[in-house]
């Protein structure tokens, strides 16, 4: 199996974000679909889902389905060496190891062992989201940084007019409002008013992934899980679903 991707940095930031939540997981590369990774954290609060469509690769040489057991911390360390303009080649010749090559000013190859682990079968979540908000990824990242200053719990409140993100603690309060008029919202679709709270840590841990996304779509309903979808160039999608907190 050999895959070539145009921008190693996209891999770098996605894998680095994943490594903050999950230690190990399995990349599944299928000849018809592309590459997919789905996994939950040990406490089952968050579900990660990363998808690289077949067409997003410049080379997609896959005979039959390949499963690669990954230690994310190790892989993140290697990918941290990705330079601007580096392309990434992912290769697996046998079931015991795989290699990553950065193709830029030279070819730098790292070979890592494949972990002997089985991908957890995770059913598709059965959810209907009553609020959906699409914003630019830099606005999303700034928002998380703002809220992080104050508290550990983040509250989303969405109406047909605006999307409000709030947090409060002993330290103080933070309230960030994006209204339709402000122009920062690309898309806002909300039934009635939706309101839910989440543990901020999951958002901050994964906020690095937003660096390589163009836009972010947040979907949630009152006291239900929230889904944060990162729309990345070449049809690549990274999303996470996080369970709510209840009072």
């Amino acid at each position: 199996m050999q895959l070539e991707f145009f921008d190693a940095r996209i891999w770098r930031y996605l894998v680095s974000a994943i490594s903050k939540v999950i230690e190990e997981g399995v990349f599944i590369v299928s000849p018809n679909e592309g590459m997919r990774f789905r996994a939950m954290d040990p406490s089952h609060v968050i579900l990660l889902d990363m998808y690289f469509p077949k067409d997003s690769f410049e080379t997609f040489d896959v005979g039959e389905e390949v499963r690669i057991g990954i230690n994310f911390e190790d892989l993140a360390k290697v990918l941290r060496r990705a330079k601007k303009e580096d392309r990434l080649i992912l290769e697996s010749k046998d079931s015991t190891s795989f290699s990553i090559t950065f193709k830029g000013k030279g070819e730098r190859t790292f070979t890592l062992p494949v972990l002997d682990i089985v991908a957890e079968e995770i059913p598709e979540p059965q959810l209907e989201f009553k609020a959906s908000i699409k914003i630019m990824s830099d606005i999303y990242r700034d928002t998380i940084k703002d809220v992080e200053l104050i508290g550990d719990i983040v509250k989303f409140i969405a109406s047909s007019e605006e999307f409000k993100i709030a947090s409060s603690s002993e330290f103080g309060e933070a309230e960030i409002i994006y209204s339709r008029e402000s122009g920062s919202i690309i898309d806002l679709e909300v039934e009635d008013v939706q309101e839910a709270s989440y543990t901020l840590e999951y958002f901050t841990d994964l906020s690095g992934a937003a660096r390589v996304a163009d836009t972010i779509t947040i979907r949630f309903s009152t006291d239900m899980p929230a889904e944060v979808i990162h729309e990345i160039p070449q049809g690549v999608v990274f999303k996470f679903l996080v369970a709510p907190r209840v009072e």
Partner: peptide
């Protein structure tokens, strides 16, 4: 107490029931 116990972090399992 305010940070960890006032509210309760739910898990996703309730929404991931197999059909």
């Amino acid at each position: 107490y305010n940070e960890f116990f006032r509210g309760r972090q739910l898990g996703l399992d309730a929404w991931l029931k197999k059909k």
